[in-house]
Every structure is written in C-alpha cells, then in structure tokens.
Simulated scan of single mutants.
Amino acid sequence: MTPSMAWIALVAAAGLDVVWALTMKRADGFRHLGWTLASLAALAGLVLLLGRSLRVLPVGTAYAVWTGLGAAGTVLLGAALFGETLTLARLAWIALIVLGVIGLRFQEV
C-alpha cells in the first residue's frame, strides 16, 4: 500500500467512525436491531481500514488523525441530525482539531 492509499484508508476509517457513532445513537442502547447491525458493520469496516493504514503510517499519527476527524465529524453531524448544541467556541475547537490533522498529514510520510 502506498502512503497516499494509506491516508485514503485512514480518512475513510474516520468517516466510518462517524457513521459508527451516529448509528450507535440511533440503536438506542442496542434496542433497534437494524441500527445495531449498521453500527457493527461500520465498526468492522473502520477497524479493517484503520488496520490497513497502519501498515504504512505511524500508529501515533494514524490514531490522532482517526480520532480527531471522527470526533469533529461526529460533533458536526450530531448537531445537524440530532439538534445537539453547536456554539462558536465548539466550532473553533473543532477547527483546531482539523488544523492539527492537516499538520500531521504534511508532517508524516
């Protein structure tokens, strides 16, 4: 796997992390079978993609990018889909997370 493909896999894993968190919310403590199965599928996919990216990328960088993008995406979609509070301060902190991810992308392999 090339470094570029590893980064694509890592960003896709972060996207599935967002899907996993949102489907967990919809599963409502595993009370809804369809959402529970979707959650487990997203979890399996994100672990697979994260594992593939780790063949090339340093684990510290990959973990920081995966959790950072996953957290940022979940906050934004949580606000859009569930009406969760999104203040200017929260947006500023999310922007810092994204800037950190961009910095790591150009610092590493």
Results as ranks from 00 to 15, higher is better:
R52V: 15
G73C: 11
G100F: 04
A41F: 14
V75W: 02
G103A: 11
T61R: 09
A64K: 09
E108H: 09
L50R: 07
A42D: 02
W35P: 07
L46Y: 00
F30I: 10
L22D: 04
T36R: 10
L76W: 06
G70Y: 06
A80T: 05
G70N: 03
V75L: 13
L50I: 12
L37W: 03
G29V: 12
D17P: 05
V19L: 14
G51V: 11
R31D: 10
I102Q: 02
T2G: 14
T67I: 13
L33V: 12
L57A: 03
A9L: 13
T74N: 00
G103P: 04
I97P: 03
R31I: 09
L10A: 02
V56Q: 07
W20C: 06
H32D: 11
G83M: 01
W35Y: 13
I97Q: 01
A6F: 01
S53R: 00
L88V: 15
P3V: 15
R90S: 04
L46V: 01
A21R: 04
A71L: 14
P58G: 05
L54W: 10
A13H: 05
L10T: 05
R90L: 06
L81S: 05
G29R: 12
L104N: 09
W93Y: 12
A42F: 03
A80F: 01
G100D: 03
W20M: 12
A64G: 07
R26C: 07
A79Q: 03
D28L: 11
A27G: 08
L33D: 06
A9S: 13
V98M: 11
L99C: 13
I8T: 02
M5R: 14
G78W: 02
A80R: 07
A89R: 15
Q107F: 11
D17E: 15
M1F: 11
L22Y: 07
I97K: 01
T36P: 09
G34M: 12
V75H: 02
W66Y: 14
V101H: 05
M1C: 12
